[in-house]
Design a protein around this nucleic acid. Structure first.
Lengths: 180, 180
DNA sequence: AATTAGTGCCACGTCAGTGTCTTACTCTTC
DNA sequence: GAAGAGTAAGACACTGACGTGGCACTAATT
């Protein structure tokens, strides 16, 4: 692929992720404009609207899968893995702000892949509970959901916090809360 | 207004809230069907799509405003007010699952009203911090965001937890986290 | 039982977004 | 600088959703 074509492709994906996260009904023409590209160019790369959606989802899933791998959720000490995961996933969420909900509706294949990654995190949270990092009187599903939401809140509502700071605050809040 | 007309109106609002939360692009025909009503009836009540959106938002804002009033955020002991607020707002979020984000995009007036209610909560969180319920080394904005997200998670992802249980778990998690 | 507010069903014009194609042009690459 | 991959610009038909109106009919109200 020619260099400028690759650049355009990446621009379309990033613009698509950004605009579709804001409004899932954003027309392709708006995405094309935001990417600095003609509408016909978008259609050249992605036959249908759905194909573009799927490509955006895959890009996000690729990035998050890499974060899961590098966090070494099953091997590293739980506290270390947790911190590393959060530090890695926050920038990914910021760069690809599309949500899992949107995937579920629009692309069953992406949804399945997301479910697989979700299971890896479930297992990790379970391990954290087993090893005594988490309270035993709280359902693991709740701990898991809280982790997701803290990451999400940090990524979208506090865009200026750096990933390391974000990891500190998210982990601290998850484990100790904000009460004194 | 005739009794059956009022019933239909309420059905349309509730179906609209539910379907529009799932997919903001849901066509009016789908909402009408879900409400057990003809599409023309929806148009008879709400001249435009926007008008229906606004009505849904207003219904949610009415409910949540009542919760804010009854929680007595400025007068009751902070711990009591917090618990009562969560217990009240969870059912409201479940009944009107539309998000503030959607309001921002679709209806500036609703957005302004939501901002007003948001400020009341900000003030309450600040009071909780001043009175020593919350840690001083954590930004109030973060505490506020975490509260919102815990409520949201509980309302949507754990629909079977009763409001009193929900309040217990949310407040406990907010203050103490899920770590041991 | 009479009245009438309210509804369902059907048809219509309109409009925005989609997907396809053609042509002339531009920029990368060798 | 030559070749060709890639693009912008415009035209086109198609589809789905929106908003409006008419008319017969149902059901709440008196």
């Amino acid at each position: 692929m020619r260099a400028d074509a690759a650049r355009n492709l990446a621009e379309v994906l990033r613009a698509g992720a950004r605009l579709l996260a804001e409004d899932p009904g954003t027309p392709l023409s708006a995405i094309a404009t935001a990417a600095g590209v003609d509408r016909s160019t978008v259609h050249r790369r992605f036959a249908t609207r759905e194909a573009l959606l799927s490509a955006v989802f895959e890009a996000k899933l690729d990035s998050s899968e890499q974060v899961l791998d590098e966090a070494r959720l099953t091997e590293a000490p739980v506290a270390v893995a947790l911190h590393r995961y959060v530090e890695g996933i926050v920038p990914v969420s910021r760069e690809w702000p599309v949500t899992t909900r949107q995937m579920m509706r629009a692309d069953p294949a992406a949804d399945r892949r997301a479910a697989g990654q979700s299971r890896r995190l479930d297992a990790f949270v379970q391990r954290a509970a087993d090893e005594g990092l988490l309270r035993a009187d709280v359902p693991a599903a709740w701990s898991r959901a809280v982790l997701d939401q803290l990451v999400r809140t940090m990524a979208y509502d506090f865009p200026d916090v750096t990933p390391p700071q974000a990891a500190d605050l998210v982990v601290d809040t998850l484990l100790n809360g904000v009460g004194r």
